[in-house]
Structures are given as C-alpha cells and as structure tokens.
Design a protein around this nucleic acid. Structure first.
Lengths: 154, 154
DNA sequence: ATTGGTAATGAAAACCATTTTCATTAAGGT
DNA sequence: ACCTTAATGAAAATGGTTTTCATTACCAAT
C-alpha cells in the first residue's frame, strides 16, 4: 500500500518546509517506539544519536509535525504532553486508552476497538459534514481507578 | 432518581473530608455551566461570589473533587486543564469533542453519540473486567482542521 | 563558486499554569 | 473550652513549554 519508510516525505514538499537531519531523527524515534513519548523522552533519545540537537528543536519540530499531521499530540493530564506518529502505514496499530486518575497509569488496549472504530467512523463522517471539518484522528480514553489504587485506600 | 442538588454530598461522608463553603461554591459554579471551565475561569467566578477564595484553593479543591470522582479533568492541549462536573444527575448532557489542531477551537457535539455510547458501554464492560478497573467516564475527541483554518493557509 | 534571502537552530531567558511551603484559621469530637 | 486534624491564602518555587535573539545551514539565481 505504501513503500516502507519516508512515507511522510511528500508532506514536506508542498511548502517551504525543509527535511533536516534533526527532523528525520525525531521522526525515526517516533517510528521506532510503541510508547507515547514526551518531548523530553524524545530529547534524550535524539541527544544520544545527535548530541547537537537541542530541546528547543524538539519542541519546534513536534509542533511542526503536529500541524503537518504527521504526529498527534496527546495530553493525559500528567504534566507533559505526549506524541505519537500518525497515519503510520507500517504502523504499530491504533489503540485506545485506559487511564487511572489516581496513579496516572496509562494502559493501551487494542482488544476491543474494532466495533468502536466502526461506530467512530460513522460519527466521523457525519461530523465532518455537519461542521465542515477535515477530521484526521480521534482519541478515546476511559478514566477510572485501577485495581492497585482501589485496594490502597478505600 | 436523585433528589435535586447536593447529590455529591454523600461522597464526602465516607472519610475525613469536609464540606466547606469554598467547595460548595466551586461545585455550584461547575453545576451551572455547560462549558469546560479552566481553573482560572472558576477562580474568577468564585472570586466574584466570595472574594476570599484564593486560586490555590481552587486548584486544591479541583484535585480533591477529581479524586472523589465528582469532577472530571480534561486536557485538550491548549495550555490549561479544564474541569467538568461528573455524574451530574440533573446534568447537562454528555457530549464528545471535535477539536481543531490549528486554532484549538473545541466544538462539543451531542448529535451522534448514541450509537457511540452503546459501543463504548460494551467496551467499558470488557475493559473493566480484563484490567480490573473501576471505569467512571470516557473521553472521545476527534481531531482535525476546521473550515476556517483550512481556507486560510492551504 | 558567490551572493542574497529565507528557514532552521541552540542557548538562555521568559512565560505561565500548577504545586509546594508555611504560618494561620476553622471545624468536629470529646 | 481543649485538642487534633483539615482547610486556607499568600508568596515562593517548580517545571514543562515558548520566545527571543544571534548564528548557521540551505536553496536559488546569478
């Protein structure tokens, strides 16, 4: 369906935005993980590959990529935003989230999402018509209290 | 189903947590709005009612209420968390979100959620069993680019 | 190759929502 | 009233993110 790698490259060519070494490093890092990395997670990894990359560039690049719809930014409310590659054709699989509001643990689940995705797809079509939005992604999170936190105090 | 008002009161009585004037003010403010208020939104409103309430108390109370599962905290990624009353029996109606990643505008929609809710309910049951979570709420958000932002710079 | 203009970058400083500290006050139980 | 614990406000600290600014890398046209 897509060639491997660099599928995002075309998105750079419709403006004056350049593909730089730093940006490739950041995209590759995101490509190679299954986790939701924070900016400083990415900084640490990037820094170990190319020590000249600064944290500022990480932030700037992530914002750029977000607006280019190459990455998706999430905020689970634990104090730092997290980033995930989007539309990744070789992708790791879409998932939804289960979050403990006490200990902030995040569980990704893929098990039960097929029917959800189906419903969401329909809603997405209706919404994009009604509000004239170009919808690219969605975020589904369940909130609750995990087993451990429940037994600890309560 | 519930008497009106003070439905949350019972939640206070299972510990050493006190119902104070500040806390009532904050809950009432949340009760009377349909919006997602930020901490400082709430502060401004609360302050106009009881000028002695400080911002610190707003934050502390909101965190308390979150953990008591009286309010739900959201973070849409625009720099300040937002809070919404939860399980509100006289409630304003559950809704989902449509967010523009460029201008950060948030549209609440209620139109199409019935089928979604049905699917999500099923998933919720499965998840709470599998992970032994006590699930209280969910958050569904679609991300995209709104009409205005698309026409501006396309 | 040289020049000229624009994009990208890093370091340091600024920002700003949120937390923490600390001293004080209010509330409940006895 | 007394005592213990909870709640509060003001001010300071925190810490993730953004801005500023001076510098460097890149592309295009000479």
């Amino acid at each position: 369906m897509h060639g491997k790698g660099r599928w995002w490259q075309e998105k750079f060519n419709q403006g004056s935005v350049r593909i730089t070494a730093s940006r490739e490093v950041i995209i590759n890092i995101l490509h190679e993980t299954e986790e939701h990395l924070s900016a400083s997670d990415i900084y640490i990894k990037a820094h170990s590959i190319s020590p000249e990359i600064g944290l500022t560039t990480i932030y700037r690049t992530l914002e750029l990529l977000e607006q280019m719809r190459i990455v998706q930014k999430f905020d689970f409310g634990d104090g730092h935003a997290r980033y995930e590659l989007l539309n990744n054709p070789g992708g790791k699989g879409h998932h939804h989230h289960l979050i403990c509001v006490k200990c902030k643990r995040i569980i990704d689940y893929k098990d039960f999402i097929e029917e959800e995705i189906h419903c969401l797809g329909k809603t997405q079509d209706l919404l994009s018509q009604k509000y004239n939005f170009q919808i690219n992604d969605h975020l589904v999170s369940f909130y609750g209290i995990c087993e451990i936190c429940r037994s600890e105090h309560g």
